[in-house]
């Protein structure tokens, strides 16, 4: 695609998107450099998931353009992996963790080609990287919430996705599980992969995400967490006061938002 800057992973320009009867996001612009991580925060109905659905090409913008590595989302699918909200996946489906990871190959090999000899080793290596090699043979339904998310990240690794989108990955995870997940996210970033996550949980942001996008129908603020997460801006995003303290460059928020 002409003018596609490979250093820019996501470029959203003047995008309006919504459903038949209502506009959810009004003329938003946003850029995510390749190899960085970005968190999308905002109240329910603020447009976080809608933006992710637009990035994966499920929703088409009414105005403006979306580019993933310089291409329209529909042409960039092999480059991206999307982890939907927890309840969108049938976790009781009778497959093992390793089978889920192997699905990553389907996106980048023709349908008639069976997985090659090396495929299983690659899948095991991906599980190893998310620290789940010992769980390979277990049914996914028997894994904890955090382990399930990491299995999906291993699948994204096998797919060799360059952009990984997570919709509310922290929901329902306790603090240790969240940290394990975010450690994996950091690890993916070290490969040069770009990670974008929506979240309600503001505390993890300063340590793990390079930039924040605050959405409430439009862009309220964006930038590095320590700049974007100012009290007055959080008030504008969530519509009420959010207690927070800033110390040594870290922002800590004293409340969860639902």
């Amino acid at each position: 695609m002409a003018g596609g800057d490979t250093r820019t992973c996501v470029e959203v320009k003047d995008v309006t998107v919504g459903y038949e009867d209502r506009i959810v996001l009004d003329r938003i612009s946003w850029t995510v450099p390749a190899g960085t991580s970005a968190a999308i925060i905002g109240p329910n109905g603020g447009g976080k998931s809608t933006l992710l659905r637009t990035l994966v090409g499920r929703l088409r913008p009414m105005t403006g353009t979306v580019r993933i590595f310089g291409r329209p989302p529909q042409e960039a699918r092999h480059l991206l992996a999307y982890l939907p909200q927890f309840e969108e996946i049938d976790w009781q489906f009778p497959i093992r963790a390793i089978d889920v990871v192997m699905q990553g190959l389907l996106a980048r090999t023709p349908w008639w080609r069976p997985p090659g000899k090396g495929a299983l080793d690659q899948a095991m290596a991906a599980l190893e990287r998310v620290r789940l090699a010992s769980e390979a043979q277990r049914p996914v339904g028997a894994l904890s919430g955090g382990q399930r998310q990491r299995v999906l990240l291993a699948r994204a690794l096998l797919q060799d996705a360059q952009l990984i989108l997570l919709d509310e990955p922290a929901t329902g995870l306790d603090a240790p599980a969240q940290h394990e997940l975010l450690d994996v996210v950091d690890d993916l970033k070290r490969d040069g992969r770009t990670v974008i996550a929506t979240t309600h949980d503001l505390n993890c942001l300063t340590d793990h995400f390079d930039t924040v996008l605050c959405l409430r129908g439009k862009v309220i603020c964006q930038g590095p967490p320590e700049e974007a997460l100012k009290p007055e801006q959080l008030l504008a995003v969530f519509g009420r006061h959010v207690p927070l303290v800033t110390a040594e460059g870290r922002v800590t928020i004293f409340e969860h938002h639902r």
Binding site: H78, Y82, P84, I89
Partner: peptide, 13 residues
């Protein structure tokens, strides 16, 4: 199996 287990992930990929 992929579309039965995770249709949205499969579509995105």
């Amino acid at each position: 199996v992929y579309i039965s287990f995770d249709p949205q992930g499969a579509e995105a990929a």
